[in-house]
Design a protein around this nucleic acid. Structure first.
Length: 436
DNA sequence: AATTGTTTAGAGCCAC
DNA sequence: GTGGCTCTAAACAATT
């Protein structure tokens, strides 16, 4: 099996292979030097970096290694160019490209979320946010292209399948996607996944089925097609609050799956009207505190997807969006769910899920992109890894999670806040189990 | 037939 | 060492 690059970013050898000689960050110049970056050939982890903004100014990263490979040293960008990336990019943060502690309140995964556009990198007059993957951008802005670029392009992203799925779902306007759409999103964004599709797609399917944080939403009668829609469980919120996209802080799971209905659906499936208490998420410290060993998933017969007759009447679910909306509304009575499906449909920012994740979900696209722009730019503002890196030729591919967007009001970090070292440490090195 | 979804199993890595 | 999380492979069922 191929297997390329070990996911968890622990495989230094592989990372080195992809990024090692690469910039190695010599181009980071001041950043690297003095930062003590490392000997790991592009695989660094930083600990105790406070204030990435400092990076821009030559902050002082000392200490532990940081995987600069995927870092987007901020500050090196060109602030005057016109951002093409995500809407609302207005606020990108320097290193921001990397979410510091998700716990901070919804950081964008790769993106930055601050209020300064430091991270923008200019490519031929056009600035694009550099996703975490695009860290090399900075260099590019300063130096001519180098041969090593090629290696970056198809490097395996430092995200687990779960985080990729989560990002995909988060960036979708309706907060739900079909399996194929998820595949496409991933491939659009990460060239690496255009290869060996059978392998990773099998893993994606497995992740969707196996992880309780993903729920299946049946298609409405007016949207026939193959496969159901997948959405994030409303209570799955901060799965990556530790800032590590390779490994969740705690696996989200439904603790109780006993309330099976005749149809066989579990209490945590979409459409369930059972109390949210039946499910354990990661958004609450309480819940996290006492994880219950996940019982083997219910037998197939007990976890049948919600069928049309199980779900709310199709008549009331004109669109998938509304379906989830209502489903979640039922499921999550205590959250800020909007029951006016119509309104929610028209105004994404009012979407229940939108609300739900806007304040605490690490991949909250809401924190990345403005609601209005989100849908429109969905497939335009985000560039594929290679495009960001300056290798792509085609049109921008996916949107998304990698693009930086405006932060929610509550998340107006200052440089130091955004630069939570734990993020880097987590994503590039190893998970930081609770930055706070 | 192809795609989608479920489940089982094993292995690697990491935190405790 | 143990347990948790993730990745991968594979078998199988269901659906389109």
């Amino acid at each position: 099996m191929l297997s390329a690059v070990k996911m968890e970013g622990h495989d230094h050898a592989e990372w080195n292979g992809y990024y090692g000689d690469a910039e190695s960050y010599s181009t980071f110049g001041n950043i690297n030097s003095g930062l003590g970056m490392n000997s790991m050939g592009g695989y660094m982890s930083v600990s105790g970096m406070s204030g990435m903004s400092g990076l821009a100014g030559g902050g002082n990263m000392t200490g532990s290694p940081v995987n600069m490979s995927y870092m987007n040293p901020a500050g090196v960008s060109h602030h005057h160019s016109v951002p093409v990336m995500s809407p609302g990019t207005g606020a990108m943060h320097a290193m921001g490209a990397i979410p510091a502690g998700m716990s901070a309140g919804g950081m964008s995964p790769l993106g930055a979320q601050s209020t300064s556009m430091n991270a923008l990198t200019s490519y031929g007059g056009v600035s694009v946010m550099s996703p975490v993957y695009g860290q090399a951008n900075i260099n590019r802005a300063r130096e001519p292209p180098k041969s090593y670029r090629r290696s970056y392009t198809h490097a395996k992203p430092p995200y687990s399948y779960i985080s990729l799925i989560t990002m995909a779902l988060q960036q979708s306007g309706s907060k739900m996607l079909t399996l194929n759409e998820i595949y496409q999103w991933i491939m659009d964004l990460f060239p690496f996944y255009r290869q060996n599709q059978q392998r990773w797609q099998n893993s994606i399917r497995h992740s969707l089925s196996f992880n309780d944080c993903f729920i299946k939403v049946p298609r409405s009668s007016d949207k026939p097609g193959k496969g159901s829609f997948w959405a994030l469980h409303p209570d799955s919120g901060n799965m990556f609050e530790n800032g590590c996209y390779l490994r969740r802080q705690k696996r989200f799971k439904c603790e109780i799956k006993v309330s099976k209905e005749p149809g066989g659906k579990s209490s945590c499936e979409a459409g369930s009207v059972s109390s949210t208490d039946s499910c354990a998420g990661n958004e609450s410290p309480h819940v996290n505190s006492s994880p219950v060993k996940e019982p083997k998933r219910a037998a197939a017969s007990e976890s049948k997807p919600l069928r049309a007759h199980d779900a709310p009447s199709p008549a009331h679910l004109p669109s998938p969006t509304l379906q989830t909306h209502q489903l979640f509304a039922h499921h999550h009575p205590h959250s800020v769910l909007v029951h006016d499906a119509h309104a929610a449909h028209l105004k994404p920012e009012h979407h229940p899920l939108h609300h739900h994740y806007s304040f605490n979900h690490p991949f909250s696209i809401n924190n990345l992109m403005s609601s209005e722009q989100q849908n429109h730019q969905h497939r335009m503002d985000l560039r594929t890894y290679d495009q960001v890196m300056g290798y792509g030729h085609g049109s921008a591919a996916a949107s998304g999670a990698l693009s930086m967007g405006p932060m929610s009001a509550k998340t107006s970090f200052d440089a130091s806040t955004t630069a939570d070292p734990s993020y880097y440490q987590g994503v590039y090195s190893r998970p930081v189990m609770n930055s706070t």
